[in-house]
Design a protein around this nucleic acid. Structure first.
Length: 572
DNA sequence: GCCGTTTTCGGCCCGACTGTTTTCAGTCG
């Protein structure tokens, strides 16, 4: 069984947690965490790199020691260092770190003093009021641990971006109504438009900080106040979402926004650059010899370390700082660049709106074209079309196009890739269409090898054009199927095929890592909504954000082109 | 444990809030 990058990342994080509980050197611990991050975000397979004899120490944060450990994991599927570590520190203690308020020191005390090695053991000790007797603990701490244990049992999934936006909108409006409030901005992973959000980080500038803190505490959706100070306040909403509010003076707005937008890794890298220039960056500004020299805007902060402004979507320390320093950041895609949508359904298959309603809605969005890509035969629950149904579909579109003004309907299909890699419609009907979206909707459980070969066989078919939702995941519901995405992207490059960035907020598929790889390998991407309703055409925002996280510029995207140009590209 | 155009040794981002404290460690972001 080949070892996946995610397995290796998980083991490095586990080692970091165990070393933390043990009280090891904090910088050593951080080295493991940074290595875990590098590994988790790497698009190439470490196992394959090892087999190809590549030098792993060229990867950031991987030195001789960690490269050797990766080698051992790939070769033997285990790690002797981890086994030895778990003889010293019980593995169950790692679970205790998930309790908010429990860090390595407290966990160690619980283990040493009370022999606790699991969440169940902790629950029992809280019940018997043993925890409050420990030095450094008290009744309040014990109470908090009890509450957190219950919360942990409830659920701890990250919020989908779209859900976070629904929760944030009314809260933002409420905070903006506060007397004297100047600026209100949501920072954190929300501002970076990550596909899922852990909590809401809100930054305000205000004349009287204490009042805006109280304003948050008084919000009707607040269930619990975790902490409340002069410049910072943390609450839990009834929806289970944690909100962190920070207030700074206007002169610090840019520095604070930069700091609270993160990512953490990006911030650390920028601060390291500052240290080299004898500067200090914190959330209040950029300081030289104790004097504030910048901080009103984010641009000022970047300028002090010799960088241009870096868009929030890129701030993951995935090479954006180096690219910015070289002046090679892409000019990221914007919604205004989008000229049409290349994936939509109507009531003819499983959509909720008719052809004309979809066309007019697309026209109102300012699009030049909209492709109707109904499901083909196999997906019967989705009322998929057979060849005759598709011919009727083509006639309807031709007829409607004669009447429509300003918007062109394109004739497409979303055809299933069957288990053997063939497409679920014959060439003699596919050739009558403008293009195809080809998707996997079945047999998700094939082996990685078989799934990869299946899709590449499909790419070889004459009328294959765009691979729909290439990873097949549903966020928080279904993991992506096992597939060698790097190989798929290379195959698409060779065959002049295209990949979809599906904008549905439940999919956001491809993910940012693979979008970036597609760009690097010269594979163009369709940013498409897969809309099944008029309303869902507006999901294009999410697609554009995801594309930006994948470093895509307008030129990397198919549907930024006028139809005549796009048509040539699709058939080149 | 990683890293290097001041360094192969000696650094490694920085500040707020809580709880249990008699001056601050631990945790968090």
């Amino acid at each position: 069984m080949p070892v996946h990058n995610s397995d290796i990342a998980e083991i490095f994080n586990r080692i970091a947690d165990l070393l933390d509980i043990k009280g090891d050197n904090p910088f050593r611990i951080r080295a493991y965490r940074e290595a875990a991050r590098t590994v988790a975000e790497l698009s190439a397979s470490l196992a394959e790199m090892v087999h190809a004899g590549e030098d792993l120490t060229r990867l950031p944060g991987i030195g001789k020691e960690l490269a050797a450990k990766i080698l051992e994991m790939v070769d033997s599927d285990s790690l002797s260092f981890l086994r030895r570590l778990e003889e010293e520190v019980p593995g169950g203690l790692v679970d205790l770190l998930r309790i908010s308020g429990l860090g390595p020191r407290k966990v160690r005390a619980l283990y040493r003093e009370l022999g606790i090695t699991s969440l169940a053991g902790l629950r029992e000790a809280v019940k018997q009021e043993k925890v409050r007797q420990l030095e450094g603990f008290g009744a309040k701490t014990e109470l908090n641990i009890g509450e957190e244990l219950e919360r942990l049992a409830a659920s701890e999934q990250r919020l989908k971006l779209a859900t976070a936006m629904e929760i944030a909108a009314p809260l933002l409006a409420y905070l903006r109504q506060t007397a004297g409030v100047l600026q209100v901005e949501i920072a954190g992973s929300y501002r970076r438009r990550k596909e899922t959000i852990g909590d809401l980080d809100i930054l305000v500038t205000h004349a009287e900080n204490a009042r805006v803190m109280q304003r948050l505490v008084d919000y009707e959706e607040v269930e619990k106040v975790v902490s409340q100070g002069a410049t910072r306040c943390t609450v839990l909403l009834r929806s289970g979402v944690q909100v962190d509010l920070r207030a700074v003076g206007q002169e610090s707005y840019g520095a604070a926004l930069h700091y609270f937008t993160g990512s953490r890794a990006h911030n650390i890298a920028v601060r390291r650059m500052a240290v080299k220039k004898k500067l200090k960056i914190n959330e209040y500004g950029v300081f030289k010899d104790g004097q504030r020299i910048a901080g009103r805007t984010e641009e000022e902060v970047y300028q002090q370390v010799g960088l241009p402004f870096i868009p929030p979507e890129l701030r993951e320390n995935r090479g954006e700082i180096e690219a910015a320093a070289r002046g090679e950041l892409p000019r990221l895609l914007t919604l205004r660049d989008i000229r049409g949508d290349l994936h939509a359904h109507t009531t003819r298959s499983d959509g909720q709106a008719g052809l004309e309603a979809m066309a007019r809605a697309a026209g109102q969005r300012g699009y030049e074209y909209l492709a109707i890509t109904e499901h083909a035969r196999l997906v019967t629950p989705a009322n998929g079309l057979d060849a005759d149904g598709l011919r009727a579909h083509i006639r309807d579109i031709d007829r409607l196009n004669e009447r429509l003004d300003g918007i062109l309907l394109l004739k497409g299909v979303e055809v299933d890739i069957l288990e053997d890699g063939s497409l679920d419609l014959d060439d003699d009907i596919l050739r009558e269409l403008d293009f195809t979206v080809c998707s996997v909707h079945s047999h998700f459980n094939l082996s990685r090898r078989k799934q990869t070969e299946r899709i590449i066989r499909a790419m070889d078919k004459r009328y294959f054009r765009i691979l729909g939702h290439p990873g097949g995941r549903l966020i928080n519901q279904r993991p992506p199927y096992e597939v060698d995405m790097e190989e798929l992207i290379a195959a698409a490059a060779q065959r002049k095929r295209f990949l979809e960035c599906n904008a549905n907020p439940d999919r956001l598929d491809l993910n940012a890592t693979y979008l970036k790889l597609a760009r690097e390998m010269g594979v163009k991407v369709a940013v498409s909504t897969d809309a099944h309703s008029v309303k869902a055409l507006a999901h294009m925002d999410f697609g554009v954000w995801q594309a930006r996280r994948g470093w895509l510029a307008a030129d990397d995207v198919l549907n930024t082109r006028p139809w005549p140009e796009l048509k040539l590209l699709l058939n080149s």
